[in-house]
Amino acid sequence: MPAFSAGDRVRVRDETPRHHHRTPQYVKARRGRVVEFIGAYLNSETRAHGGDGLPRVPMYRVEFDMTELWSEYTASATDKVWIDLYEHWIEHDRGTGD
């Protein structure tokens, strides 16, 4: 049962583990919205270090407003970045402050 659903407001964890991971720096600590749950995938974070990638981890497509990512972004208020993130990288965004 996926922990997040379409429309959920989420915040990306601001962590930099030493192991391989696919969450880029520019979305860490940023707020976005879940577009959809896209399935459970092998865990590339363990596969990268010789593991089998199991158990599979739920993955979500998350959208970020460009204006959330880049303070100087003025080209259009509706432009976005979409990126697929493992469940353990996002948390519910319940507040407005950090």
């Binding site: 696919r22 880029p24 995938y41 092998l42 590339s44 993955m59 959208e63 460009m66 080209a75 259009s76 509706t78 432009d79 976005k80 970045v81 979409w82 990126i83 697929d84 993130l85």
Partner: peptide, 13 residues
């Protein structure tokens, strides 16, 4: 300007 750009940053999977 009113076309919404969605940049899709590919995941390994």
């Amino acid at each position: 300007e009113d076309v919404e750009v969605r940049v899709v940053d590919s995941n390994s999977e």
